[in-house]
Computed example of a mutant assay.
Amino acid sequence: MKRLVVSGAVAIAGAVAAGLLAAAPAEAASPVQIYRVYYDSPGKDTRSNASLNAEWVQLYNRTTTARQLKGVTLRDKSGHTYRFGSFTLKGHKSVYVHTGRGTNTATNRYWGSKAYIWNNTGDTAYLRYPSGAVADTCKWGGGGSSKYC
């Protein structure tokens, strides 16, 4: 019995050394991440521009390096998609992507939608690089009005 245990330990040690059982590296976190989603604007859902703009997604650059977001997309499960034009997010800064219409600034961007994007009963926000690779996601169920991701 001892011989079998030792043989098994030697085989496992050899496999680890050969890289066969090595753990996969942890997925690298994106420099820009979804920080918070405010999916249920306060008050009644009147579809007024003010109400639509009270629905937003906050993105945060967790690094000290400014990041160009041109071509980066933010979308929901239904496929509603916001695509960044030429826009640079400075290090350790946030940008809010509001659902409604407005004038884009360094801290606020506007989807331009006349309807709500984020479902109050549950949804998922996807942040994707121009290549289509997922940079970050944030999922929530019903209840509450916002989700810290």
Rank of each mutant, 00 (worst) to 15 (best):
H98S: 06
G43E: 09
V16A: 05
H80N: 08
G8E: 03
G14E: 05
A18H: 03
V57K: 06
T105I: 12
T124S: 05
G43A: 10
T121W: 04
R109L: 11
A23K: 13
A135H: 00
K2A: 13
W140C: 13
L69T: 06
A9R: 04
A18T: 07
N120C: 00
T107E: 06
W118V: 05
V97I: 15
Y38A: 11
H98I: 11
A26H: 08
T46H: 00
S131L: 04
G102N: 08
G144I: 11
Y129G: 00
A133G: 01
N120I: 08
L69A: 03
L74V: 13
G112P: 01
Q58C: 09
T103G: 08
S48A: 10
Q68F: 02
S145D: 11
T103P: 00
P25A: 14
G14W: 06
P130E: 01
T107R: 12
S30W: 07
A26R: 13
L21M: 12
V6T: 09
N61A: 05
D76S: 13
A22L: 12
R109H: 02
W56N: 11
A28D: 09
K147V: 12
S48K: 10
V32I: 12
G132C: 04
Q58S: 15
R83S: 07
A24D: 11
P130L: 02
G122K: 02
D123R: 04
S30D: 05
L89C: 13
R101K: 15
P42Y: 04
K2T: 15
Y82K: 04
Y110D: 06
G43M: 08
A15W: 04
N49W: 11
Y82F: 15
I34S: 03
G85L: 08
A13L: 13
Y38K: 12
A13Q: 06
T73E: 03
T64A: 13
N53M: 12
V16Q: 01
Y110E: 07
T65R: 11
D45W: 04
V32H: 01
N49T: 15
K90S: 14
